[in-house]
Design a protein around this nucleic acid. Structure first.
Lengths: 166, 166
DNA sequence: TTATATTTTCAAAAATTATTGAAAATATAA
DNA sequence: TTATATTTTCAATAATTTTTGAAAATATAA
């Protein structure tokens, strides 16, 4: 397989995966393109490669920077901004986990707590509270393991789990 | 908090979470409603509770059955179909993991293998292949741990990790 | 068998989400 | 300072996804 072809395939695969996990297709494409490219790219190069507008490229590059998946890189003597993706895949996993924990898991935990305050005396209510508590406990475990993984350095996968289980 | 209110909140929370993870909002609502309700519900009851059309209710109930998250339940003497959600949250996690593994991770692994066959001799190509291999290795670890978790019973979280690390 | 209840399908409509592109804002150079 | 390059914004448009609802299909009862 030729590099150019493989890159295209990679961009497409990453975009599909992103879409399946609730990430904007174009954002995933931009991320993939930067992951697949060694040198930093300018907005114009991203536009060109993916055939997207300036506004779209700009917006998705900003969003990737919000997720800490892409850096701004200054090229000496150039006025334009250049962008480069974090290539260390464990680092990428950590950053995505950190954001999803903050944006999704933590609010979920708070909301589930609220729902556990149902005081109705019916069987229906008791069953409901049990289900919510089960989900809460489960989400709490996920949250804790992500937390530990984010603290651990090298072999987080090992560290996180040991901590989780003690 | 009153049961009725908490249920509404639960449906909304679950729908938001679903949307964030690439699951159709209504499908998540239907799932939440069934999770929150002890007795099985008919299509008409789901339509009524969520103010959705028959076609929409039918489609999402079928899809939830495809994911093995919802069962068809026969009520004696009734001609209608009734539906009930799997309430065991570990079981729910396993079934979702199983489907996502099959539909998303496994195809990903195959596609990444393809991209590693790039033979170009440039630094650019070597860097690309390295990135792809790193992602492949990472995805492989996820895949293995899901696999082990699906085999393990009770404390899969422990079993999966031990197996992964040896 | 025929009548009735229930489920499924799917083309059209609605709602949502993503994208464009040009104007405005900002930054840098002269 | 003014001129020019670059980035950002955002209303309008386009694309995509979801939903509707009524007709067709299917299942059950009489």
């Amino acid at each position: 397989m030729k590099l150019a072809e493989a890159k295209k395939q990679f961009v497409q695969t990453w975009a599909r995966l992103g879409a399946e996990w609730g990430i904007n297709r174009t954002m995933a494409q931009v991320h993939a393109l930067l992951l697949a490219t060694e040198k930093p790219l300018s907005t114009d190069e991203v536009m060109e490669e993916l055939s997207i507008s300036r506004g779209n490229a700009n917006m998705n590059l900003r969003e990737l920077m919000n997720w800490n998946l892409v850096y701004r890189e200054l090229v000496p003597g150039e006025r334009k901004e250049y962008f480069r993706a974090e290539k260390d895949i464990w680092e990428v996993a950590k950053r995505i986990s950190r954001e999803r924990k903050r944006r999704e898991i933590e609010p979920l935990l708070r909301e589930l707590s609220q729902m556990e305050t149902v005081t109705d005396d019916s069987t229906e209510a008791k069953q409901f509270v049990k289900t919510v508590k089960d989900i809460h406990e489960f989400a709490g475990k996920i949250d804790k393991s992500v937390e530990t993984m984010l603290k651990a350095d090298e072999n987080w996968f090992f560290g996180a789990i040991l901590k989780l289980l003690r």
